[in-house]
Structures are given as structure tokens and as C-alpha cells.
Amino acid sequence: MCRRHPLTKWGLLLGALLTPAAVTGQEPAGKIVVLNTARSVDRYRLTEEEFRRQMGGQTIIDVNLEESDLDAAGLNDLIAREHPDLVYSIGSQAFHLAGAAAGGAPQLFSSVINWQRFPQRAGVYGIANELSLSQELSLLRYLLPKAVRVGVLFDPKFNRERIAEAKAYSKDVGLTLVEKSIDNPVNDEVDDALLELLPQIDILWLVSDPGILTDRDRVEGIFQAADEAGKPVYAYSEVFIGFGASLVAAPDIPTIGRQAATLAQSLLRKEEPAAAVQFPAGSNIILDACHLAKLNTEYNPDALDSVNRLLGCH
């Protein structure tokens, strides 16, 4: 069953029929409000499609916020009228709106950039938008086993704990993390840190850090410095392939939708998940074999069956 919220305009989600393929017949029936920030954005659309495929048989009330004038009061009305068992927000705008509404239904989110910046509340569950740093290090070890000295720049305001965890974990996978903390990441500080860091490392690791990756110029500067030093860059988003990253390990978007569905099924069964927020379980790996060859960095050929996109020199 699929229903549309009456406030939505422009004939929302035409043909959005549920696919019951994945249901085992044992899932509890439930009613879920899905708030999607923008279905025209591929990653949001794919996430919702996978979620719906997995949740076939549930009543879904969907709202595409880019085609709707739904506000917090409207969402409160919707929740009061429909009594959903769960509100699932896809994207930051949807999550912000769900947070502003006072409805008592449990909330689930995904595709929210830096979800930690939002107020933490009980009854809110989600899938993080990035792989954990430990996952990223494991995948690096798997794909580029000879790149063992890994350099990372970070702003302690955003990443002190995460980098400390990553440093402890790096030993488990036989890597040496060479980290540079920059308290005041203005351009000169970043340039100086890179000059000091690059000669000590085999690969530069870009982590999600709004203090370091402030704008396009900063990102270009970091890639240029790495290139001049002949060091490959390992990044967390495919956006960085365009800047010259040799290896990217990003979350697999459809898996995020499936994970959200698995979490939703637990919540509908009134099971308390082991963790309120999970890291993405699926990875999307892009390896630029051409660039790595130019930098004399070998990849693990036995890991190629795990690579989603292999970029050659053609």
C-alpha cells in the first residue's frame, strides 16, 4: 500500500508502487512516513528505492520535500492524523524537519552530512553518511598493501577522537598513521603541514573534515601538493576522483537504503538496535590503476573483484 501526503504538489512520485520482493511474510505491518529531501538527487532516490523494495508490504506515506510545502506544523498534523510507527528522513533537510516536529514516533535517518551536528535525541536512529575511519583503513590495507605509512591532516575541533581511534586501529591492520593536527587551518598552516607530512608518507588520506576541506581551492591545493610530491591520495568520496584521487572508498548508496530497512524492521518489532547510528556496511570502491602506475604504487590484484570502478589509461 502506498499513499501520498495531501500537502504535496505536482503529482508526487508517480508510479511509486511498492515491490514486495524482499518480504519474507514475517515482517510486522507498520506505517512509515518517508521524508525525502529531494528525489531528483540520485543518492536520495536510490536510497529510498532500496528502502521501499526491502519494506514491501508496509504502508508508506511519502513526501518529496522539493515538491512540497510541508513545514514542521504540517508534519505534526500529518503525524497526529496518521499515527505512523516510524518517520524515515533521507537527507539533511528532511532530518532537520523531522527534528523540528514534535511527533512521538521513532525516527530513522540516512544520507545526512555530519549528522552529529544535529541535536541528539532518544528514539532517533540512523545510518551514517560515511564509512567508519577503521573501515576506510581496512580497505586501504586490502587494496594498496604496500602503502603502509598513511598521512592525514585534521582539525582537532572536528576529528580529534576519530583520528585517535583510527590511530589505535591502524596498528591492527599493520599501518602507521602519521597525523598532523592543525588548530588553525588557514591556507599557510595547511601548506606548511603538507610540506612536512608528504615526505614521511606513502599515501595521503583525506578524511571528511570541514576544518581542512573548506573549499574547492583548498582541495585543489592539497591534491597539487600531493601530486608534486609523487604521493597518491586516498579519499572518502568519488567527488575527489575529479581532483586526482587514486583510490576512493565511499559508502554504497543502495546498501544504505537496505540497512535503513533492516533497522526499520527491528524498530517495527520493538527491538532496540545495538547501536542507534550504524556505519554504512557496503562500500563503493574506485581505483585509478593508471594514476597509481604513474606514481609507482602497486595495488593488490587479488582485490580487483572488490573494485566497483577500475580506471585505466585509455
Partner: peptide, 11 residues
């Protein structure tokens, strides 16, 4: 609850 992931190493 079966979670389909892209690769064995992810699982």
C-alpha cells in the same frame, strides 16, 4: 534479517 552488501569483504 538478511543484509545484501556489494562484496564479501563488506559482509
Amino acid at each position: 534479517k538478511v543484509l545484501s552488501v556489494p562484496k564479501d569483504i563488506d559482509a
